[in-house]
């Protein structure tokens, strides 16, 4: 891995590693509205990339298209050299793409542990109904490994002490962390974070940045949507700027924040 901690600024394209996610001419229309227009972007292994843009510029739609929630109208999405467009979300998840949501989507009635365990999915091998019901040796073994894995991740994100708490009783910031933890249980190689800092206070944002760093140090590539520019500036190797569904700039944060097109898109809000 080329990245050695800190927040080096990547400027030259040729120094980038192997592409893990390639989005090619991606297009999505809702009725007459073009939400995403011929978008092309590459995310390389080990990077932290950010997707920014004014409200309604189609950032979340891009995530929904990559993870298979929306059907693609044109273009392609390639993950680890395999075309994944058209696949259902769960199989894209099994390939190693995990995500969080802008508006937190955890199971409020379930415990933190159970929420995290959900990341183990269902249908991707492992014990079936019969083995579960009969409590077979294989199932018990699997349960032990799952429990260990989940506990390891909860430790990693710092939720161990809240393990048996109901998720809805968690403070907002912890719920966001839980969602990230749940995504990590799926053992992703690419993690998509949709506005992870939304609604957090500055202390929580600081912890979040550390966590994203730690996740990236585990070899997980991160693509994040964010409005908080201090976070983008500190974390992202590469920033893509979206406006009206099209990419208007790409480059390091220091470069794009001087870009006139970007400043115009943000009406002067972006650069500072």
């Amino acid at each position: 891995m080329w990245r050695t901690g800190g927040w080096n600024v990547m400027t030259e394209q040729k120094k980038r590693g192997k592409a893990i996610l390639q989005v090619q001419d991606l297009t999505k229309r809702f009725g007459g509205l073009v939400a995403v227009n011929n978008l092309t972007l590459d995310v390389c292994e080990g990077e932290i990339c950010a997707l920014i843009g004014p409200n309604g510029s189609g950032k979340t739609t891009v995530l929904n298209l990559i993870t298979g929630i929306y059907e693609i109208d044109g273009g392609s999405v390639t993950f680890e050299n395999a075309q994944i467009q058209g696949e259902p979300p769960h199989s894209i998840c099994w390939r190693g793409v995990a995500r969080t949501f802008q508006n937190i989507r955890i199971l409020g009635g379930q415990t933190v542990f159970e929420n995290a365990l959900l990341g183990k999915g269902y249908g991707n091998g492992g014990s079936g109904v019969l083995q579960t019901v009969l409590d077979t040796v294989k199932f018990r073994k699997e349960r032990e490994t799952f429990t260990a894995e989940v506990d390891e991740i909860l430790e990693f994100v710092g939720l161990s002490d809240l393990r048996n708490e109901r998720a809805r009783n968690l403070p907002y910031g912890k719920q966001r962390i839980l969602e990230i933890g749940r995504a990590l249980i799926t053992k992703p190689r690419l993690l998509l974070l949709d506005e992870p800092a939304a609604g957090l206070n500055s202390k929580e944002i600081y912890d979040l940045m550390e966590l994203i760093e730690k996740i990236n140090d585990r070899g997980i590539t991160v693509l994040l949507i964010e409005h908080r520019m201090e976070l983008v500036g500190k974390l992202a190797n590469l920033v893509f700027v979206l406006n009206h569904g099209s990419k208007i700039a790409e480059g390091s944060f220091d470069v794009i924040k001087e870009d006139p097109a970007v400043i115009e898109a943000y009406l002067g809000k972006g650069g500072n």
């Binding site: 993870t67 298979g68 929630i69 769960h90 998840c93 995990a98 959900l118 990341g119 249908g123 991707n124």
Partner: peptide, 9 residues
């Protein structure tokens, strides 16, 4: 949708 994205078929 959250279930699907978490790998639940």
């Amino acid at each position: 949708i959250a279930a699907e994205v978490m790998g639940v078929n």
